[in-house]
Design a protein around this nucleic acid. Structure first.
Length: 448
RNA sequence: GUGGCUGUAGCUCAGUUGGUUAGAGCAUUGGAUUGUGGAUCCAAGGGUCGGGGGUUCAAGUCCCCUCAGCCACCCCA
């Protein structure tokens, strides 16, 4: 029989225990924060009908993993065609339309994997299968909701140990107005955004070249956007920006929304250096309609955004005659992990076991099993050694797994009604009466 | 999707101008007086040199194709 090479599909990964334990910790931190803001959990299927997923964003349509057919089954018909979801926002919009009885505001969080047929680049935290942590507020147009989403993002990143990060805020509405104001034609909006977004990377010469190549009339663009950009940052001068775009009512409205969200987010405790108004933040899925935001690490520009979100008041209406406003964000678990690893704060754990009960003779089996049962009843995480191996091997295992305590109960100890408890960190070992074992171990565990 | 780089043990790599049974470190397993780990020492297992074809007396080493991985761009979490 030929051996099949063990491997994982490109852009997907196995998570071995050490890494997974650390990932779980990150998830717990995120989930805790989401709950503090009153979000309730939701899960949806990995597979959706193709028609649910397509048509929301041209880029994403290209990244869909379509599922062709079941093995030995029939080819899917056009109506029953299916695909793996590429985000959690579209499924949420579907749910909102499908269950009108849900409360308003509907605040849900959702932590599940999504799939995109991208070309993976691990260093940038980019994969084909990755976990998104979404928090969305559905059913209100209030910009307080957008501000809360920003504050929530801020808290999550702080809780995770990030010290220097930047939440960049802009607005689709403002950009639409700005685009119209500069180009004189709303039709240029998309390419205008795409070019503008590259400003940080390629500078003005590059952007102007892109404008030309995209056929965007942008004779005054440099002057205007330079002024707007100069008025942005962590201490935005909204009055100056207003003066520049005053002739365009859409831009004015978008700007006032940014200003409100900005102020409310600060009011919710977001620190000055963590939030900035970036007029040239133009990226984002096509379904955004209002404020948009993303989080980046200024010191690690190669890592993609850690979070991204915004207001999408039109998305639900693709599934319903009702129009339902919504805003929200997604935090990328894998980007977070990539970033924490780079910063040196991603600490893999070997094991969560607290006590290993060693053994080395057949006579002691009953004694050891009873001890394990007692400890587990008290909530202690216990492993029992299975084979008749040398103690050396058993201790080496405890050491490798970073198990803090090892219990040895050989004939001598058992005869005296005692056990030996060794603290692997201090190497200290002491004799404990079997009757006091649970109490002693529990107390010892509290000291570490 | 566009462009570039790489592909030798589980991992990180070395392999001289193509020449006999392909090496090291780490990891794994076993041992160094039989009830105690992290150090050291000894030993062992593990590779059809990504796959296929070609040039040659001879290819890990040269050429072609292919697959895979990585990086930049695109886009984004």
């Amino acid at each position: 029989m030929p051996i099949i090479t063990p491997r994982t599909f490109r852009g997907t990964r196995d998570f071995l225990p050490g890494e997974l334990l650390a990932r779980r910790r990150i998830l717990e931190t995120i989930e805790e924060a989401y709950r503090r803001y009153g979000f309730q959990p939701l899960e949806t299927p990995a597979i959706e009908y193709l028609e649910i997923l397509t048509g929301k964003s041209e880029e994403n349509d290209k990244l869909l993993y379509e599922i062709k057919r079941a093995r030995g089954g029939e080819e899917e018909t056009a109506e029953s065609a299916i695909a793996l979801r590429y985000d959690l926002t579209v499924p949420l919009a579907r749910v909102v339309a499908q269950y009108p009885e849900l409360p308003r505001p509907f605040k849900r969080y959702q932590i599940q994997p999504v799939w995109r047929a991208d070309r993976p680049q691990p260093r940038q935290g980019r994969f084909r299968e990755f976990v998104q942590c979404d928090a969305d507020i559905v059913g209100t147009e209030s910009l307080l909701a957008d501000a809360e989403i920003i504050a929530l993002t801020y808290e999550v990143l702080r809780d995770l140990g990030f010290e220097k990060f930047r939440i960049r805020l802009s607005s689709r509405k403002f950009l639409a107005g700005l685009s119209e104001f500069i180009t004189g034609d709303a039709a240029h909006f998309h390419s205008f955004c795409r070019c503008l977004d590259k400003l940080d990377k390629i500078g003005w010469e590059g952007v102007e070249k892109e404008f030309n190549e995209s056929g965007i009339p942008a004779n005054r663009a440099r002057e205007i956007v330079t002024l707007v950009a100069a008025s942005g940052g962590t201490h935005p001068d909204f009055t100056s920006v207003l003066r520049i775009v005053a002739q365009n009512p859409v831009a004015v409205e978008g700007l006032s929304e940014i200003e409100m969200v900005f102020a409310a987010a600060r009011g919710l405790g977001v620190s000055v250096e963590a939030l900035s108004f970036d007029a040239h933040l133009a990226r984002g899925l096509d379904y955004y309609t209002g404020p948009i935001f993303e989080t980046v690490l200024p010191d690690y520009p190669h890592i993609g955004s850690l979070s991204g979100g915004g207001r999408y008041d039109g998305l639900v209406s693709t599934f319903s005659k009702q129009s339902v406003p919504a805003t929200g964000t997604t935090i990328g678990l894998d980007r977070i992990q990539t970033a924490l690893t780079e910063i040196g704060k991603f600490q893999a754990l070997a094991s969560t076991t607290q006590v290993l009960i060693a053994r080395f003779d057949a006579d002691g089996v009953a004694f050891v099993l009873e001890l394990a049962a007692d400890l587990r009843k008290a909530g202690v995480r216990v492993e029992v050694w299975y084979d008749d191996d040398k103690l050396k091997k058993q201790f080496a295992y405890a050491d490798k797994q970073q198990i803090p305590f090892v219990i040895v109960a050989g004939t001598e100890e058992r005869a005296r009604g005692e056990i030996a408890v060794k603290n692997m960190r201090t190497t200290e070992q002491k004799q404990v009466a079997r009757t006091e074992a649970v109490k002693e171990i529990s107390a010892a565990l509290r000291t570490i």
